[in-house]
C-alpha cells in the first residue's frame, strides 16, 4: 500500500468535466481513497484548475467510486500481470461506471494492450495480483467465453484469420453460446439473418464479407469494421477497443467510430486505446488515463488526451521525475 503514498494528481477542470460532475452528483469533499477512507483530500482551486493532494494514486477513479446513484460496471484493483515472466502491469486501479468511456493512452509498451488482454482472459498473460469485479462477479475466475457471455467484448488490434469458418457460422455459434449461457433457446435462422442484416448496415459491411471466412483476405479496414460488426451482434456492456483506429483511413475511421456510437447505449461502457485525437473527437471519452510502466500515472478528461496529442508524453515523464 505504501508504494502509492504521497502521490498527487493534477486535475484539469474543464466545462466538460463540470457536466460530468453534475450528472454524477459528486461532492468534492467526499473524495475517498480507494484503499479505504483516508479523510477528505486536500483540494485547492487555482482558477479553472483543481489541485488535489492525497496519498491516493488516482483521483478520477476515486471520484467515480463514490458517485452516488451510480452503478459500477468494472472495478479493477491493484491489477498486476506478466508475460513470459516479465512484469508488465504493476498495480492498475481503474473503476468504470455504466455508460462511461475511458480512453487509455501511453507510450508503446506501457501496458495498455496487456491490460485489455488480461481483462478478456488471454491465456498468454499471467495475472500475478489484484482483483477485477465485473457486474458483481469475480472476473478473473471466469473463463474467457464466460466473460464474453457476461458482456465483455474486445475489438482486437490484429484480428486473426480463421480459414474455413464463415462469419455466418461463427456469429451463430457465438450468439447461441451466449443464449445458452443465459438459459435461452437458440436463435431461429430467420431471426438470425434479420439480425445480421440489421447490424451489418450499421458499419456498412458488405454482405459478401459475412459469407466469407472470418477475416480471411479482409483488408485492414474491413477487419476493424468486422470487429465493430461483431460488437453490434453481441451487444456487450463493456467494450474494449484496442487501437481500433490504427490502420484506418479517415473515412473508415468515421464509419467505425460512428458505428460504435450508434451501437452503444447509455449503459454501454468502453475502454478505448488510441493514439489519435480524431478518435477522441468521435468518441468523446469521459476520462483519459495515461499508462506508463504498468501504472496509471495521470487521469483526466478529454483535455488530457488533447494535450498529449500536442505535447507528447515527455511533460508527464518530467513531472513524474520531479515528484520523485
Amino acid at each position: 500500500m505504501t508504494k502509492y503514498s504521497l502521490r498527487f494528481v493534477r486535475w484539469d477542470l474543464s466545462k466538460r468535466l463540470s457536466v460530468c460532475d453534475f450528472r454524477w452528483r459528486v461532492s468534492w469533499n467526499e473524495i475517498f481513497c480507494r484503499r479505504g477512507f483516508v479523510g477528505p483530500v486536500r483540494a485547492k482551486k487555482q482558477g479553472r484548475r483543481l489541485l488535489i493532494y492525497s496519498d491516493c494514486s488516482n483521483f478520477a477513479l476515486s471520484i467515480s467510486l463514490n458517485r452516488s446513484n451510480h452503478h459500477t460496471m468494472l472495478d479493477i484493483k491493484n491489477l498486476c500481470a506478466s508475460v513470459d515472466g516479465k512484469e508488465i502491469l504493476r498495480g492498475i486501479d481503474l473503476t468504470i461506471g455504466d455508460g462511461e468511456i475511458h480512453a487509455l493512452m501511453g507510450p508503446n509498451g506501457s501496458g495498455k494492450s496487456t491490460l485489455c488482454n488480461v481483462l478478456v482472459g488471454n491465456p498468454q498473460y499471467t495475472v500475478t495480483g489484484g482483483t477485477v469485479v465485473f457486474n458483481g462477479k469475480d472476473l478473473l475466475s471466469l473463463p474467457p467465453e464466460d466473460r464474453a457471455h457476461e458482456g465483455l467484448f474486445m475489438s482486437f488490434q490484429s484480428p486473426v484469420e480463421i480459414p474455413g469458418v464463415s462469419m455466418v457460422n461463427f456469429m451463430r455459434a457465438a450468439i447461441n453460446a451466449k443464449r445458452s449461457y443465459l438459459g435461452q433457446e437458440p436463435i431461429t435462422a430467420q431471426a438470425f439473418l434479420k439480425l445480421m442484416k440489421e447490424k451489418r448496415q450499421i458499419v456498412e459491411l458488405d454482405a459478401s464479407l459475412t459469407r466469407r471466412s472470418v477475416n480471411e483476405g479482409f483488408s485492414g479496414g474491413e477487419r476493424k469494421r468486422n470487429e465493430i460488426f461483431q460488437m453490434a451482434m453481441l451487444e456487450p456492456t463493456v467494450a474494449i477497443l484496442d487501437e481500433t483506429d490504427s490502420g484506418l483511413d479517415v473515412d473508415a475511421l468515421r464509419v467505425v467510430a460512428e458505428g460504435f456510437n450508434k451501437i452503444r447505449t447509455t449503459q454501454t461502457s468502453a475502454i478505448v486505446i488510441t493514439h489519435y485525437q480524431r478518435m477522441l473527437d468521435y468518441l468523446r471519452p469521459d476520462f483519459v488515463h495515461v499508462l506508463m510502466n504498468g501504472r496509471i500515472v495521470r487521469s483526466g478528461d478529454a483535455q488530457l488526451g488533447y494535450r498529449i496529442e500536442r505535447e507528447g508524453f515527455d511533460w508527464i515523464k518530467a513531472e513524474l521525475h520531479e515528484e520523485l
Binding site: V120, G121, N122, P123, P143, P144, E145, R147, A148, H149, F153, M154, F156, P159, V160, E161, I162, P163, G164, V165, N169, F170, A173, A174, I175, A177, K178, Y181, S213, Q230, L234
Partner: peptide, 23 residues
C-alpha cells in the same frame, strides 16, 4: 484463433470443432 473465438463466447470445445470441421 481459439482465443479469438473464446472472446466472442464460443467455448474451446465448440471452437475446436468449428476449426477442425472447417479444415
Amino acid at each position: 484463433a481459439l482465443f479469438y473465438m473464446a472472446q466472442r463466447g464460443v467455448s474451446p470445445d465448440e471452437a475446436r470443432l468449428l476449426l477442425q470441421h472447417a479444415f
